[in-house]
Design a protein around this nucleic acid. Structure first.
Lengths: 178, 178
DNA sequence: ACATCTGTTCAGTAAATACTGAACAAACTA
DNA sequence: TAGTTTGTTCAGTATTTACTGAACAGATGT
């Protein structure tokens, strides 16, 4: 039986309790998350995973560092995995699971934006159907809404593709070749 | 004293109470709004302004059609104006004000996204400062976050510009000239 | 088998938010 | 001037949401 690990605290030797600056950082990330409509606790978890050493943290480490209940951590990590920002993995020979920022998480989010964008285009088209027997000037607002979303529906995937490429070969196109 | 207008109802002759389909449409727009983190009532107002005849509606027309309190309409129209989705105007010789979908509202929203994007890049950079005395492998997650947001910070304004142009001269570049 | 550790579920509550309706203010009319 | 109309503010309520903590379930080790 391995009793070398600290039993009093889940925190490993290399990771002290968060410093003042670290706690402040975590809080600020949580505020950003709130701004885009996500729960604060999800932002705290994400914020801590951005700066923690090591870059992966267990369920109970998160609970301790963030002073949150296990239930809350469980719910929020599930949410963060759902929207593709973090991932779960296990280390061989260790029972507990760890979470870390998912490489590529931001592309994932961008893809979800594209899905939302499609929903807006579709509802604009539904609106136009409702107005199909009316004078054309009533259609303008919906046509504009449809057109910009159709535009983004075409262009955002292209942008995403460019990003993926640029990331693989950095420096290659600091001078963009248009 | 002009008593020709319907006194019983604020609704003009050309606009009946919303039909079943119209009510349904308004509800669906409100659900979309909720999805992106905005109040339902704001979505209802916006949804109705998308399909109403005429395309502009007064404060009290909105209250009546959407069965909402004047207070709610007042608060939510203010919110919608703040985020740039609707605008307020008055017709000469009429006391009351009207609201309508703001032409260009979507570009406005895109500009706000760009601002949010900048906030994310900045907090990534703050995280990197916190980790500046640590091994490089700890920086990866934050560098990726910074890089994609910096990428979008450069590219989204370009995209927006392209959209503005394309809108002014439609058909000109269905075949994009890259 | 039993004890231990890890994580989930869920009922309850604390806090935030949307919404109402009444009181108020400002602008116009007679 | 008083009376109407139009719109805002704000206190109060109802609903939703975030979060806790305890009970539970499953896996591992002895």
């Amino acid at each position: 039986m391995n009793i070398s690990a600290n039993q009093a605290s889940e925190l490993s030797a290399q990771q002290e309790y968060p410093s003042f600056e670290q706690r402040h950082y975590v809080e600020d990330v949580s505020v950003l998350f709130e701004m885009v409509g996500l729960p604060r606790m999800a932002g705290r978890i994400f914020g801590w995973l951005l700066i923690s050493e090591p870059p992966y943290q267990s369920h109970s480490e998160l609970a301790e560092v963030l002073q949150a209940s296990k239930g809350s951590i469980s719910t929020m990590t599930r949410l963060l995995m759902q929207i593709g920002l973090i991932e779960r993995f296990s280390l061989p020979g260790q029972r507990r699971d760890y979470f870390r920022i998912k490489p590529d998480s931001w592309s994932e989010m961008m893809r979800q934006r594209i899905v939302q964008n499609t929903a807006f285009r579709e509802i604009a088209e539904r609106g136009l159907k409702l107005l199909q027997d009316t004078p054309a000037h009533l259609h303008q607002r919906l046509e504009e809404m449809r057109d910009i979303h159709a535009f983004c529906e075409r262009e955002l995937p292209v942008l995403l593709e460019r990003w993926e490429q640029e990331r693989r070969q950095p420096q290659t196109n600091s001078q963009v070749s248009l």
